[in-house]
Amino acid sequence: MELECMRNRKNMDGLVLKRAAGKTGTLFFKVFRLLLLAGVGYLVIYPLITYLSIALSEPNDLYEELTGWMPQDPTFLNFKGLFGYFKYWDHLWITVSIAGVSTLLTLITCPLVGYGLARYRFKGNNIVFAMVILSIIVPIQTAQIPMYLDYQEFDFFGIGRLIGLFTGKPLTANLLNSYWVYYIPALFGVGLRSGLYIFLFRQYFMGMPRDLEDAGKVDGCSKFGVYLRIFVPNVKPVFVTEFLLSMIYYWNDTTYSRMFITLPDRQPLALYVETMDLFLNMMKDSIEAMEARTQLFAARLLVVLPLMILFIVCQKFFIESMDRSGIKG
């Protein structure tokens, strides 16, 4: 008993000494941390400020050597000019529905598949996992033309063709320029970067203790019940992260959209603005192009602005949930 007391005492003394020595070290660390974060923050925020500054300038201002960070007299001229021909709200609504619906669909499928891969050691598990990785490695452009043809005569996984055998007329639908080209792959785990989210969920499900599973079984949950009631609530931050990432990818995507959405009126924001950019590059040096160039900066800001708002709305939940993630001892 006494010995234990002595030992405790010794430990305590050690702690006090260590703290005293650490004090200057901590201060140094704090300053270092602040400087580093500020530096990195500057690098991150710099392009954004540049964008804002150009979007608020008159075209002539760009060539003014004397202008500093911000134009001397900021104008909304670019935005006004832009809204003359750019149906922002229509395209915004299209983008919101594409990104929103697809993301919700990936939120249903990806955790399910990730869970199956992480928690069930069925035959061919490795092969399925390799397929998941393959689906994100092969650039989507490779399959561009076959996919285009497939969606032009989409036969609902062969069912349409099968019906055709009996009726003589295959049941197909032309999905080009419709948003089903986003929703169907998203539902079946092969949407934009879906494989990545499957991998993400797999990793976090794998790290969870086996006791959880047993606890569910004792309580009489079915296999799906164990997943839904026990595992899903425990990876909430992963869900929030996936939601944000998927929203952002669908929002900013142009590669995939360009393949299937050819009607300008039906294009999502990012693609529409990129088409504007390409168009501008063609007419390079004309005066109109100069004017449109600054408008383009305004347009690009408008594309990402809703995402920023979304992030600011989500961030409280996002960052809080990050703090509460995992199973604490």
Binding site: T109, G116, F122, V128, V132, S135, T142, A143, M147, F188
Partner: peptide, 24 residues
């Protein structure tokens, strides 16, 4: 257990076979 595992990954398998594998 195997069957349950297959059921969990089934959506992806359908998507991979019908939507990706063929074009690939």
């Amino acid at each position: 257990d195997d069957i349950a595992g297959y059921l969990f990954v089934l959506p992806f398998l359908i998507g991979f076979v019908f939507l990706l594998a063929k074009p690939m």
